[in-house]
Amino acid sequence: MSATHAEHAPGMPRARLARAWLRYAVEPYLYLSPALLLICFVMLIPLAIGISYAFQSINLLRPFDAGFVGLENFETLVGDGRFWTAMSNTFWWTFGSVTLQFGLGLGLALLLSTQFHGKRLVQALVFLPWAVPTFLIALTWSWLFNPVIGPLPHWAAALGLLSEPYNILGDPDTALWGPILANVWYGVPFFAITLLAALQSIPSELYEAAEIDGASRWQCFTKITLPFLGPMIAITVMLRAIWIANFADLIYVMTGGGPANSTQILATYVFTTAFRKLDFGYASAIAVALLGVLMVYAVILLVVREKLVRV
């Protein structure tokens, strides 16, 4: 017992110091090394290689035509009408999805923050879409839009939204609404969960005090709830937008970017160029452009965040 105490006393011998150094400088990296090695070899090194591909001609269908080509891929990109269509589609896809997901998610969160019968069951049921695999969401919704087996075209025609029950995924003017609706179905629970957690962190004393002072429900919502949730909402929405802009699964499965390129977003354009045309150089150039757009957006996000925090 006394021996152990002596070892912990100040003025440790050199060997102890070395052991302490080993413990505090080396030991954590021992635990981290598998994670770091995998991330480096599977994500960071391929990322660097991917960026370098953007400046090369790499097409698996033309294996002898490979090599560095400078900015040629980007020059093609600027003149590529599909690329600019994909750019504007990315915006509408992200904007439409986020707005609807957020609006419906906020409504759901407000409902779930009140008391009602069967709340636990309702909560479990409305969060279920969040757990459904995305490829299955895409297939299910494309089946729902199919007039042969799905009810949606018939309902829309009965309501007068469509002239006759046809598949909106086959019409360039309406096709993007298909994946957006599927994405809304999938994303509402995410917003509801985050916003519900935030709602529950607002101290209830505030509402009690407001009620004693005679505030209406609407006043409580605009004067207490919104100011409290504001900054959190802004950050969640903006981060979610990045995630959705990169989210290619739904569109790829539901329309493959068609008809006539009308649902192609940058992320699906990257995938179809790499997967169907095996043109890795051009795909990487599109990906780099997407990364650039996202980085500009991230800078805007940081500025907005700064403003919000200062207020």
Binding site: L36, M43, I51, L290, L294
Partner: peptide, 24 residues
Amino acid sequence: WVVALMLLTQMFPLLMIIAPIYKL
């Protein structure tokens, strides 16, 4: 730095590395 590295992997579009991963 390690934390920043891990956050970085969550930021870039994963599809960027689909071609290099295929080749590797």
